[in-house]
């Protein structure tokens, strides 16, 4: 037991600090990717609902491909293709190769994956808004962007939150896949700690506990958001069969 505590202690020779740093990196990427994915999702949902035929087809290809291909494969493709393209462009402009930050690359790669799922979640949520509420906003002369902010987004929130909560948890766990491209998030830090000390069980258990804590905390936060988003709607508990 004493040995375990020593291994996990925050300062060297313990590896706890590395694990926590990995966790912070994981959360940074998860948050960034989730936010980036939401932006893509909002644009994608609007495009699918109100866009022209070409845009709709392009978006259909995007959401289908991203949701069909295994995430690990996508991450490898997007990471290597993405960094390669950036370097080619940079060399073509005479700047030479650029250093691409792991966080930025991770956010970009996972954000594109998240965006495909977010597009479908938000499209469904917008379609679930009673049409009359949008018509009322239009009938009173509300400009489109204001309507998005004041009516569409708050009204779709309660339909979107459960799906978005799932998506967030997927984001936190997908960060582990970035270990394959050498990004030092929680899983990679754990592997390194485990390999150096041969204490595999201890470190993977610790990492598992950290992921679990993130999930539990996220659950509470989303429960609050959902409660807020559902304000104004009668409780379903009271209508149970």
């Amino acid at each position: 037991m004493e040995q375990v505590i020593e291994l996990l202690s925050l300062s060297p020779p313990g590896w706890g600090g590395n694990l926590l740093r990995g966790l912070v990196h994981s959360l940074e990427i998860a948050l960034g990717a989730f936010g980036f994915g939401l932006l893509i999702g909002l644009g994608g949902a609007y495009g699918k609902l109100y866009g022209g035929p070409v845009l709709r087809d392009l978006l259909a290809v995007y959401t289908t491909v991203v949701r069909a291909v295994p995430e690990l494969v996508l991450i490898l493709i997007l990471y290597y293709v993405g960094t390669d393209l950036i370097n080619k462009a940079s060399e073509a402009m005479g700047y030479g190769r650029v250093e691409i930050s792991g966080v930025a690359a991770g956010i970009w790669v996972l954000g594109i994956v998240q965006g495909a799922y977010a597009t479908e979640i938000l499209r469904g949520a917008i379609k679930a808004i009673p049409i009359g509420q949008l018509e009322a906003a239009r009938a009173f002369g509300m400009p489109p962007l204001k309507m998005l902010r004041r009516v569409t987004i708050p009204a779709m929130m309660s339909f979107a939150i459960p799906g978005l909560a799932n998506l967030w948890l997927i984001a936190t766990k997908d960060t582990a896949l970035l270990a394959v491209v050498g990004f030092n998030e929680l899983t990679l830090e754990t592997r390194q700690a485990a390999a150096s000390t041969r204490a595999y069980f201890t470190f993977f258990l610790a990492a598992g506990a950290l992921y679990l804590m993130v999930t539990l905390l996220s659950g509470r936060i989303f429960a609050r958001i959902e409660k807020w988003a559902r304000k104004g709607q009668p409780s379903h508990r009271r209508a149970k069969a």
């Binding site: 509420q133 009938a139 009173f140 009204a155 104004g232 709607q233």
Partner: peptide, 22 residues
């Protein structure tokens, strides 16, 4: 059209109040 709409007070058959607002 937005200016003119904002001067026409429409009342709908199905009320269409914004349910997320008091």
């Amino acid at each position: 059209i937005e200016r003119i709409r904002s001067r026409l007070g429409m009342v709908f058959q199905a009320f269409n109040l914004w349910t997320h607002r008091t």
